[in-house]
């Protein structure tokens, strides 16, 4: 009786573990693309040096 309870427990734990493993694999396949696609950027213009109207601040008299 004790042995059968042990075996049933073992089977249950195994099935939970195996199911978890399967789910992890499926998740990995979904979230990780097989080929990493890195967007390529070509810089064609230098940064613009725009000046805002409030570049100089000297504080308030009161």
């Amino acid at each position: 009786m004790k042995i059968s309870t042990l075996i049933i427990g073992f089977i249950l734990v195994s099935s939970i573990f195996l199911t978890a493993c399967q789910q992890t694999t499926t998740q990995d396949e979904i979230t990780q693309p097989r080929i990493t696609e890195t967007p390529e950027e070509e810089a064609v213009a230098e940064d613009v040096e725009l000046i805002a109207e409030d570049e100089v601040d000297i504080g308030e008299m009161i």
Binding site: P39, E40, E41, E42, A43, V44, A45
Partner: peptide
Amino acid sequence: TKLYGLARA
């Protein structure tokens, strides 16, 4: 300009 660079490539 960054998006242009990406689109251009």
